[in-house]
């Protein structure tokens, strides 16, 4: 297949993925609404068939897997069309980021019951893909010389996967804070009742961060090694480097606070949210409005 038809294929796959994620979103929304109603009418359990919501959740998850596969195919086609890994500009980072985020969620779903997160996750993926298509889209093009390196694959993949997991941890930390507020104001509402306990959420956030922190460290170091061979220095306080460092420091503080200083719950959740927002800031602000050497957005 020629480059151009591959690029078209990639675009079509993105649209298909967007379509599938939209259906996923509606299904999760219905599931959440029904489950909430079901909890409200607990006395009339026999009227409301609980197995129905479970079925819808299963269908939604299956569709999310399909969306993930379509997105994966789209990213691969994009890469093939340009004869390189598809991480040359912000459109490509975004579609790969959405892929990593979905992948992180689906992988975590294997281990923990996170179906309640399906709705916010499908919304987030829709937003990312929507922005990518409308604002960030650039035609498939070759890489600038500085990006021509094996380190592109290593550094960027590590950074994107870390980002996906950071955002997942952030979603859970945010949920923690919302539920914590609800509980201190007199109890969970119908929607919140089916969510896990605060302790479980706190643990889960910690596990995700502890799991991905070494990968993020690796992403930063791989970036430094690459910078040494491309730009002549391994660390130059370029805005992107600075913010990657800030993210690293913030998550290191989170881990220390959680493990050594015994911070749990609210304080730890806030710290996690802060750390995650430095990552997002780095991605959005530095890529689009920043100066420095990491501005590959192509905007």
């Amino acid at each position: 297949m020629s480059s151009i038809s591959l690029a078209y294929l990639s675009n079509n796959l993105i649209y298909s993925a967007l379509f599938v994620f939209t259906i996923t979103f509606f299904l999760y929304a219905i599931e959440t609404a029904w489950a909430v109603r079901g909890d409200d009418s607990a006395s009339r359990q026999n009227v409301f068939d609980r197995s129905k919501t479970a079925k819808i959740a299963r269908i939604a998850t299956a569709l999310m897997v399909l969306g993930f596969l379509l997105l994966l195919a789209a990213v691969i086609a994009r890469g093939l069309s340009a004869h390189r890994v598809p991480w040359g500009n912000m459109y490509e980072f975004s579609i790969t980021g959405a892929l990593a985020f979905t992948g992180a969620y689906l992988a975590a779903l294997q281990k923990y019951d996170l179906r309640w997160l399906g709705l916010p996750i499908s919304i987030a993926v829709l937003l990312v893909l929507g922005t990518a298509i409308t604002l960030l889209y650039r035609p498939s093009a070759p890489l600038v010389p500085a990006l021509k390196s094996t380190w592109l694959v290593v550094h960027v993949s590590a950074a994107i996967i870390s980002g996906g997991v950071f955002l997942l941890a952030n979603s859970i930390a945010a949920t923690y804070l919302i539920l914590d507020r609800m509980e201190s104001r007199g109890g969970r509402n119908a929607w919140a009742k089916r969510l896990p306990t605060l302790e479980v959420l706190d643990q889960l956030t910690y596990r995700l961060v502890a799991f991905v922190f070494p990968l993020w460290t690796f992403a930063v170091i791989a970036g430094a090694i690459w910078a040494e061979s491309a730009w002549g220095r391994y660390w130059g306080w370029d805005p992107k480097e600075t913010w990657a460092f800030i993210t690293w420091v913030a998550y290191a503080a989170y881990l220390h606070a959680r493990v050594t200083a015994g911070w749990k719950g609210k304080k730890a959740a806030w710290l996690c949210l802060f750390a995650g927002s430095t990552f997002l800031f780095n991605y959005v602000y530095v890529n689009v409005w920043g100066t420095g050497r990491h501005t590959y957005s192509g905007l």
């Binding site: 130059g236 306080w237 370029d238 805005p239 600075t242 913010w243 460092f245 800030i246 420091v249 913030a250 290191a252 503080a253 220390h256 606070a257 200083a261 430095t278 530095v286 920043g290 100066t291 420095g292």
Partner: peptide
């Protein structure tokens, strides 16, 4: 912990204002 957070916060102005070294 405080120093670690300060290090992060202290790095911010360097990414906002132009730096002589760069």
């Amino acid at each position: 912990l405080i120093l670690l957070l300060l290090l992060g916060i202290g790095a911010i102005p360097g990414s906002i204002f132009p730096q002589r070294t760069q």
